[in-house]
Amino acid sequence: MGFQFEHVLCNVCGVDDCHPVAVGEDFEYGTSDQEFMAVQCRRCDTVYLNPRPDSDGIRLAYPENYHAFQFDESEFGLVYRVRQRLEARRLLRWCRGLPDGAAILDIGCGDGFHVELLRKFGKPTWEVDGVDSDSRAVSGARKRGIDIHQGSIEELNLKQESYDLILMIMTIEHVCDPLAMLKAVSGLLKPGGRLVIVTDNTGSPDFRIFGNRHWGGYHFPRHLYLFNRRNLSQLCDRAGLKTVSVKSALSPVNWTYSFRNWIQDWKGPSWLKNRLSLSSPLALAIFTAIDLPLSMVGIGAILHGVFVKEKSK
């Protein structure tokens, strides 16, 4: 597949003053034999794909079997059940203090995994919506019996100031213009409403070790902007959202992919590569054990950010 490339600016600083950090390829899905470059802003350290495929090209980088379109128990078995429990607990923690009848929106909800969890484990009076721009995600959600909106929140004409909580779980890194999206999110939140962002952490040791090619967080070419604690706060601040907290959290996913990509790229044994996958409980357990102490000292593989739209004075 050949892409048309576009050059972009750092979404946080609005300039392109960067140095190269990595060149890589689509190790996970092999949608293209093209190489892609990740650069790091010299002013704020935001990592971004530059040049990147234009918006038509990016769509082609999501194959039919993309995991977020269909993450189900039949394929992922034990991993699915464990993740379901952990994620439900995490979601309910973010929902603490929400009133009866609260409106919740999950942006970039994929096949509605989190929407389903909230409907199942949350208060029955909560109204939980999901949005995804890809029709295959909408079909995946339907299979779960969930209707979600298809499109971008900028286009969907959702009611302004109507949501108590908005979730962006592993979403912001896929967005072409995160600042524009966060401004739209700010418009959708009620005053005092909260935004939760979960994304890969460029301040983590796995980024330091694998960051010049094989880091799983690059997900070439699908992750367009990647953040650390500081620049994620800066970005939200530019969108008018105040930082409540940005903490690192445990995740074995990037470790698993990083090792897998490295072995694949250096032509290592395929039996080992095949054992490093998201459906392998052993691999996930090993990398959970590695990331656990790191997350305890604040350098875990992913970030959890909580931001609030301040009430007007």
Partner: peptide, 12 residues
């Protein structure tokens, strides 16, 4: 290098 080729979008 492959790095420069990627930077100008012509690795292919």
């Amino acid at each position: 290098t492959n790095r420069l080729a990627a930077a100008i979008g012509m690795s292919k």
